[in-house]
């Protein structure tokens, strides 16, 4: 969906001014009151829908985070203001900071891997013949449509200690040290397997979007660069990257949001192996605090912090994107 929105801005140099010109300027002054309120009336249904679907949960979340809201309080209706106790409790909890730090490192690694591999796939798609490209595109779409739970199970079995394909292949290749090797035992190793599953799931969207952007770049630019003696790497850096910059920023922003919230992959792998307390990400921490710990107030406070961190990232990305579109 976002692809569609972004496309006009990235169709090379001629597009933006033209696109801007085609939008009719809003009528100004001289008209009756009715026409001035009409746009707002037309916005109203969407605004109401957003307020209900997005606004209410956020208000409720913030409200919960500021109250004592154990399960019993929810049942008995005894939620009560507790003077930011939830926030002071989580912020003074070493576990929370460990989880937050782990999540940031995990998300950053996933975003970088997704963007690099996504770009490589996009460039590959651009170079491939039609038939192979079609096959690759379909494969990507199929990977994209695989539910996270199913995909994670497959990854878990690939890396299974006893029956895993990875260990089997490594042992066959002569690396006998991997016989019965547990990929989930070490926290970093578990998160790497989870990260691989996350990146695998995110690649199709990133690769196809970048590929769509790449097809819009005028080939004559590359021809000209080639004539000037530019290497492919130079052409990539001087043409592809700047032209795709707004798309790259948008995809990086989306990936950051997605990867910061990763839940399923890690949660499922924790059931299969590893040490849970050393592999929790912030979303899992919030979930466990709320639903297993019966402390919905603290769980909500963790979620609010999560939202704030993401909002910080988003502002950075949006400002960057606006700058790129303008230049």
């Amino acid at each position: 969906m976002s692809t569609q929105v972004m496309m006009p801005a990235t169709t090379g140099s001629p597009a933006p001014p033209q696109a801007r010109g085609t939008i009719p300027a809003p009528p100004r002054g001289g008209r009756g009151k009715g026409s001035r309120t009409l746009p707002y009336l037309l916005l109203l249904p969407a605004a109401v829908l957003l307020a209900v679907v997005l606004g209410y949960p956020i208000v409720r979340l913030v409200g919960l985070s500021l109250n004592r809201a154990k399960l019993r309080d929810l049942v008995k209706g005894t939620e009560s203001w507790n003077n930011f106790a939830n926030y002071t409790a989580i912020l003074s909890d070493a576990t929370f900071w460990a989880v937050l730090g782990r999540t940031i490192v995990f998300a950053a690694a996933c975003v970088v891997a997704t963007m690099v591999l996504g770009m490589m796939l996009a460039l590959l798609l651009a170079k491939l013949g039609r038939v192979v490209r079609l096959i690759l595109s379909i494969s990507l779409l199929m990977a994209w449509s695989t539910p996270q739970v199913t995909a994670t199970q497959v990854w878990q079995w690939l890396f299974d200690t006893r029956y895993g394909l990875v260990n089997w292949a490594l042992v066959r290749a002569g690396l006998t040290g991997f016989d019965n090797h547990s990929w989930l035992a070490a926290p970093a190793s578990l998160l790497t397997v989870a990260g691989a599953a996350v990146v695998w799931g995110a690649l199709p969207f990133v690769a196809l979007t970048l590929y769509a952007g790449r097809t819009q770049i005028d080939e004559s630019l590359y021809e000209a660069a080639g004539m000037d003696g530019a290497t492919p790497w130079q052409a990539f850096r001087s043409i592809t990257v700047p032209m795709l910059a707004p798309i790259i920023t948008m995809l990086a922003a989306l990936s950051t949001i997605w990867d910061f919230r990763v839940f399923t992959q890690v949660y499922l792998l924790q059931q299969a192996g590893g040490i849970t307390s050393e592999t929790n990400l912030i979303s899992i921490h919030a979930y466990r605090t709320s639903f297993s710990g019966n402390d919905f107030g603290s769980g909500a406070a963790i979620s609010v912090v999560m939202v704030l961190v993401l909002a910080g990232f988003s502002i950075f990305y949006v400002r960057r994107m606006l700058k790129e579109v303008q230049s």
């Binding site: 200690t161 006893r162 019965n180 547990s182 989930l184 035992a185 059931q271 299969a272 192996g273 040490i275």
Partner: peptide
């Protein structure tokens, strides 16, 4: 035991 020491 030959079971994974972190398995379920």
């Amino acid at each position: 035991s030959t079971a994974p020491t972190d398995g379920n």
